[in-house]
Amino acid sequence: MNARPLATLALLLALLAGCAAPGAVRHDGATHPAQAQGWVDTRLYFGLGPADQPQQGISEQAWREFLDREVTPRFPDGLSVLDVYGQWQGAQQPSPERLRSKLLVIDYPNTPANRAKVEAIRTAWKRRTGDQSVLRVTQPADVSF
């Protein structure tokens, strides 16, 4: 991949993933801490439907409604959403299942309350769609503003 689109994507993610710690700058003029300790970066992968049949599955409007109802109230300080393509192949499947997908990226202080919010989002999606899983990848994050 060309370095310029990669750099642009990194900048976009940095701008959009601006979750705020206590005392971090919001639009009210407070200041950002130089560095936030104890944060994690969580990525959630949501399958929307067959990649080759965009009329099936979850619409963009339904995704945004889910985001507004289930995600934003839990993480109002910021998050990122990317359109991604995903696939998987079960042991008994002759070919992979290809999916339109959304990647939700949330950076936040690693607390039991925040981890419970992430699990509530995953549960809400599975309940809404009947999906068996929402892939979660969580890693420590060295966050600065």
Results as ranks from 00 to 15, higher is better:
residue 8 T to H: 09
residue 12 L to F: 05
residue 128 R to E: 15
residue 59 S to P: 12
residue 1 M to F: 06
residue 36 A to G: 06
residue 38 G to C: 07
residue 66 F to L: 13
residue 46 F to S: 09
residue 115 R to I: 05
residue 97 E to L: 05
residue 100 R to M: 03
residue 50 P to N: 15
residue 1 M to G: 08
residue 29 G to D: 02
residue 116 A to F: 06
residue 135 L to A: 08
residue 75 F to G: 06
residue 109 P to T: 05
residue 63 W to S: 03
residue 138 T to Y: 08
residue 145 F to L: 15
residue 12 L to R: 01
residue 102 K to Y: 01
residue 45 Y to N: 02
residue 138 T to A: 08
residue 17 A to Y: 07
residue 93 Q to A: 03
residue 112 P to S: 04
residue 50 P to M: 11
residue 5 P to F: 07
residue 25 V to N: 08
residue 97 E to D: 07
residue 49 G to W: 00
residue 44 L to Y: 13
residue 48 L to R: 13
residue 131 D to C: 00
residue 36 A to I: 08
residue 49 G to P: 12
residue 113 A to C: 06
residue 18 G to S: 04
residue 62 A to V: 11
residue 125 W to R: 11
residue 120 A to C: 00
residue 59 S to M: 13
residue 128 R to D: 10
residue 21 A to M: 12
residue 52 D to P: 12
residue 2 N to D: 14
residue 8 T to I: 15
residue 142 D to V: 10
residue 78 G to R: 12
residue 131 D to W: 02
residue 81 V to M: 03
residue 43 R to Y: 14
residue 104 L to D: 03
residue 44 L to W: 13
residue 2 N to S: 15
residue 59 S to D: 05
residue 123 T to G: 11
residue 58 I to T: 14
residue 70 E to F: 05
residue 26 R to M: 08
residue 2 N to T: 07
residue 99 L to T: 04
residue 26 R to F: 05
residue 18 G to V: 09
residue 31 T to P: 04
residue 4 R to W: 12
residue 9 L to R: 04
residue 65 E to G: 14
residue 88 W to F: 05
residue 88 W to P: 00
residue 23 G to S: 02
residue 63 W to A: 00
residue 28 D to R: 09
residue 34 A to Q: 04
residue 144 S to D: 15
residue 97 E to S: 13
residue 6 L to E: 02
residue 21 A to W: 10
residue 124 A to W: 10
residue 25 V to R: 11
residue 111 T to L: 08
residue 13 L to Q: 11
residue 57 G to M: 04
residue 8 T to C: 10
residue 12 L to A: 01
residue 32 H to F: 09
residue 134 V to A: 01
residue 119 E to F: 03
residue 49 G to C: 11
residue 27 H to Y: 07
residue 35 Q to F: 06
residue 7 A to H: 08
residue 137 V to W: 01
residue 15 L to G: 13
residue 35 Q to M: 10
residue 45 Y to V: 13
residue 35 Q to H: 09
residue 142 D to W: 15
residue 141 A to I: 01
residue 137 V to N: 00
residue 82 L to W: 00
residue 104 L to A: 01
residue 140 P to N: 09
residue 54 P to N: 02
residue 73 P to M: 02
residue 121 I to P: 13
residue 27 H to G: 03
residue 75 F to S: 07
residue 78 G to P: 00
residue 77 D to W: 08
